[in-house]
Design a protein around this nucleic acid. Structure first.
Lengths: 136, 136
DNA sequence: CAAAACTGTAACAATAATTATTACAATAAA
DNA sequence: TTTATTGTAATAATTATTGTTACAGTTTTG
């Protein structure tokens, strides 16, 4: 699958929701996650592309959610971050002269799509607001 | 997530099922998948540990399924291969002096477990026999 | 029994993916 | 005009994955 990007994006979004009365800087966010601020900015750049976060440049700038947390489903976060199929991709190219090799990718793709579908449906049942509520 | 191991394991198992009247060598299997035979043996070593494959050493040796394909669920394959949480793991250690940082791992773990659960349930509905049937 | 064809596995090399860092231009506030 | 901040490119470092070589151990077969 992917990497730690889902965790990081969700961490960012949770912080933005919990402290939604102010703009948060990449430095502050990086301090909570304990990673490099540039990574936070890169990750947010992606979240902005997907309409989940907005930013203000310049002094006293920072980040905030682009819409109410109850309108952000965790599946939206997953899809914003998703790059490769959930169940992984082999980098081989199966032998086309073998019955199995010739067709396996087609069948794997279908299977992966189904699996991913149930995850997306599951994640779609929780909003960022629900998730953030757990942090007392 | 992981890598290409699920694909490779499923490819191996499908071959073993389709040609279940003979023992297949790692060389033959590697030729269909188009990877190194040693990788095949390593992967099978894991499948053996999980009771899905059995092997015979020596000349005229090779591999076969350890039980009927209809008794092997794709979720068994997934669990045999699974190493890291489906949705990825960040390698940071969140700041414990932050409300979010302190608790996020606990909540992420719960969320990941739920997501993984639905995938396992979904994969559990298909057996290796079902899957192999698709290869005319 | 000796040669041949295998599996099993360790050690290591190569490649690819991920994460971190540095640097600096652009923007906005004070 | 200084300061704080985002945006982004370039590159380095680290880690994960995949591939390779080598060889000991096992079994069949001539």
């Amino acid at each position: 699958m992917n990497n730690g990007r889902f965790s990081i994006s969700l961490h960012i979004l949770t912080l933005l929701e919990m402290l939604s009365n102010e703009l948060l800087t990449s430095d502050y966010i990086a301090g909570s996650i304990n990673i490099n601020p540039v990574l936070v900015r890169k990750e947010i750049s992606n979240l902005k592309k997907h309409g989940l976060v907005e930013s203000k440049e310049g002094k006293a700038g920072g980040y905030a959610l682009a819409k109410p947390a109850r309108q952000i489903r965790l599946s939206d976060v997953y899809q914003a971050v998703r790059q490769t199929p959930l169940l992984g991709t082999a980098k081989n190219s199966p032998n086309p002269s073998c019955v199995v090799g010739k067709q396996i990718n087609k069948h794997l793709d279908a299977l992966y799509a189904d699996a991913e579908d149930v995850v997306v449906k599951k994640l779609g049942k929780t909003t960022l607001a629900d998730f953030a509520k757990k942090f007392a």
